[in-house]
Design a protein around this nucleic acid. Sequence first.
DNA 1: CTGAAAGCGCTTACAG
DNA 2: CTGAAAGCGCTTACAG
Lengths: 338, 338
Amino acid sequence: MPKGSSSPRQVTIHDVAQEAGLSKSTVSLVLQGSNLIKPETAVRVREVAQRLGYVYNRQAAELRSGTSNRIGVVINDLMNPFFAEVLVGIERRLVDAGYVVFMAHTNESLERQQAVLTAMREQGAAGIAICPALGSDKSVVDVVQSWGIPLVVMIRSLDHGQHDFCGSDNALGIRLATQHLLDKGHRRIGFVGGETGVVMESRLEGYRSALAAAGIPVDESLIFRARPNREGGHGAMTTLLETTRGVTAAVSYNDLTAFGALSALGEHGIRVGKDFALMGFDNVLATAHANPPLSTVDVRPSGLGEHAADLLLQRIREPDRPPQCYLGKPELVLRQST
Amino acid sequence: MPKGSSSPRQVTIHDVAQEAGLSKSTVSLVLQGSNLIKPETAVRVREVAQRLGYVYNRQAAELRSGTSNRIGVVINDLMNPFFAEVLVGIERRLVDAGYVVFMAHTNESLERQQAVLTAMREQGAAGIAICPALGSDKSVVDVVQSWGIPLVVMIRSLDHGQHDFCGSDNALGIRLATQHLLDKGHRRIGFVGGETGVVMESRLEGYRSALAAAGIPVDESLIFRARPNREGGHGAMTTLLETTRGVTAAVSYNDLTAFGALSALGEHGIRVGKDFALMGFDNVLATAHANPPLSTVDVRPSGLGEHAADLLLQRIREPDRPPQCYLGKPELVLRQST
DNA sequence: CTGAAAGCGCTTACAG
DNA sequence: CTGAAAGCGCTTACAG
């Protein structure tokens, strides 16, 4: 167990009370901003506290009052700018609401995820927001809920309708992207990247339904599964280029795979936006200045984080309300890649 | 002040003791893994704790023992993948060491920075690691040190030699980058992006010294200052292309500005790696699959985070040792952009 | 090897 | 408007 720094000796409420010639109770009330206290007294107490270098010990206060102002946020993949942007959004909102955030990065490891959730429980988290690691199942919801800790699941739903959830309409998003390519006259359109999980399934469904609506039979050999990162996108696009013919466009599982695909296309001397059309998904910041700037599906990543914070804060206020589901409506952002 | 969830009623050490027919003290010792306890007793206590659904209240333990296992990490710009990678590194190391991390994002705001530092103090942070917001001065070091909280400053040094610091050798890094371009035969080499701050100054110095060593006079009009992000790099490169002639290469303030520069070059129909050579700085993950893959200066971002964690952990163990400075040695990573 | 007692720094009824 | 007392869940000497 790590040791904290050994300060000379903490100044406590007791010292302040003594110095001010009052009781601990009174000082405590002043610090809580109670209006039971005579203004002059409050002023004097604050002045003394300041002079003595008093620091409020929130830990002690919370132990006594049984409250907590800490919220745990667990992120599966911080190296993906999409999740980094989600984190920025949720952190901003939680801090604005007066909370402090424990952040943990699971790096898609289920063991680590279990460990950090347990740590957050021991730390007395007032709530937990989680982007589940790949392979997570509903048991994480059951576990956290059995602890009585308010929970919001982000991005990857675990047990639809059984927990607060904040994500985006993946099927719709990819459908829009695919339709856009169809509208541009493309007929053989690849799907690049993504492996497994609910998000992948919905996105594939969106891809298939857009083709179906246009009367185009789905050619399963144009679906190139790969890890949802740049390497995956690079590999998938390379395979696409080397094993198919007549493909003039592709939708990507997400922006990251699109970036990988972009570099693969570049290596093959293919001018994206002219010889080939490519769509991303997420609209992370980097898309605007990709080479070329990437057309993508905007799901407002940091907005998703903010909404998740709101859901969690409401759940904390009202623990028994029915599970809520926020599904952001994706919108196309068209740039030079299509 | 936010309220925590109101659990039915917590199971405490007292309940466990009663159920097991022992005293609180004994149970406490078992939980601490003390070897003063008879093995059978320990087993029984654990069994009872498990059965009762007991959860260790670390908060109470720490209040009593005066320890803390929480470390605050404050990051200036999470939207920059460089800092996200630093965060991943430091978080990983701190969690491995048994700590839990408070994360706060200042978004380069000095007020927010002050607020989150204060919050971390009230939370009883055992240590603080900070990437200071632009414009921070040595007062943040003084303040945190006056609180008696172990501190490590990352990336942007605040008061050289007065605090633990973990960063990289910026002058050397840019010198290597510039030399590489010189070796490739380039003579008019631009400097793209970056505005102010110690990091900018050292990188400029590296640029100037490399040119000087090659006997090339520094042309100040080839230095294009701009915000250290993609937009800045895009704007700076656009200006460079439109206001200069004969420039065949550029070093960038960091990878982010290089990405922006890359897109500006693309818009001008310039083939990077053939018609123009571009160097980044940092070696964030995204460089490997940029279009084209970006030559850059590797400072091992997540490694910097890990080193910062080590410095902080050592400082916690040994509060009075002299300030340490870890300066990573940058190395060139050559890809298609040069 | 185990227990009784005091106390970490605060809050919260309850008096007055 | 202010104070005395009890207690949040734990740890830590001190006994035995």
